[in-house]
Design a binder for these strands. Structure first.
Length: 111
DNA sequence: GCGGTGACGGTCG
DNA sequence: CCGACCGCCACCG
């Protein structure tokens, strides 16, 4: 069979999107968590890149991905506000410091 | 082809 | 708990 000489980047992006699509409504996951589940441990940044490449109309619930502190990494003026509104509409709450209590809203994926 | 950049995260003080 | 640093690596000029 032909050796899959596909661009690794494209493959990684697909895997990342697949994992993000699994996040249930009303729950959030961290970049690191997504990276790990996508088979890219320690490469949280790449998850950020993959999601940034998305930006427009897609079936990927990108708003459900936040950083390890439970905060939105996206700059407020550049989508951060939208992300928060989308999450609040799903029932996700933010504390006074603008952070999501991961204790309550973190998605606990099953390997 | 090289170097700076960045939707991150673990560690340290 | 918080800020500063460093490691990570694909993307872009």
């Amino acid at each position: 069979m032909s050796r899959e000489k596909l661009p690794r980047s494209t493959t990684s992006y697909s895997r990342i999107y697949s994992v993000v699509r699994r996040i249930p409504r009303g729950r959030v996951a961290t970049y690191g968590q997504i990276a790990k589940l996508a088979g890219l441990p320690g490469r949280a940044r790449q998850v950020g890149y993959a999601l940034h490449a998305l930006t427009s109309a897609t079936a990927v619930p990108w708003q459900r991905v936040v950083n390890a502190a439970g905060a939105i990494s996206l700059p407020p003026m550049n989508g951060g506000i939208s992300q928060r509104l989308l999450l609040e509409k799903e029932g996700v709450r933010f504390d006074a410091r603008g952070r999501i209590p991961l204790k309550s809203f973190a998605w606990r994926a099953r390997a």
